[in-house]
Amino acid sequence: MLRLENVGLKYGDGPEILRDVSFAVHPGDFYFLTGPSGAGKSSLLKLLFLALRPTRGTLRIFGEDVGTLSHGNLPLIRRRIGVVFQEFRLLDHLSTYDNVALPLRVAGRSESSYRRDVMDLLDWVGLAQKSADLPPVLSGGEKQRAAIARAVIAKPQLLLADEPTGNVDPVLAKRLLHLFLELNRLGTTMLIATHDKGLVRQAERPVLHLEEGTLSLQ
């Protein structure tokens, strides 16, 4: 599903943020990505959700070489990936319902075809009562759950999450972990970047550790 071979990344003429990163993720895998701040976790995730392209090495996603992928083919790959951004990236002018439905809407689905799915998911993450609210009036935890709901609404094959429990209390963090484990059990491949050692311990899943731009399996 994901294969990185000697991947390097740098911004402009700056130093390499990632150096010779190599690893493979297979369908159904669940990995945590850990490492100190500034180690390059977010940059690695950006590579994986195709916001950046590697400056060297080979990155293959769903069998496609990202280095040679045309701009026109990016949307089809991205629709198979769900992303939970560290800063949520909810659109403040859209309701929680519209934010969660966004991936289905851009894929060309009609509102009537996804209304029930979105409401069910909002109910599952405990936001059914907030479906008409705008993100600015949601709490940090509610925003986090809305962002997760948006990432999984289109049933992606791969879910990438950047600090998904960074803004929530331990109880909600545990609940979100169960949500991720459930999604994984249902077949979604997971890669979660986190600082939360408790979360990693509870899940008992393999950890990819990134330090000074170099990746190792722990």
Binding site: F49, A51, H71, G72, P75, V83, V106, R150
Partner: peptide, 16 residues
């Protein structure tokens, strides 16, 4: 820009 970037990342085509 922030909306356009997000739309790209959730799989929107340029034409959309």
């Amino acid at each position: 820009r922030h909306i356009v970037d997000l739309l790209h990342l959730v799989g929107a085509r340029d034409s959309y």
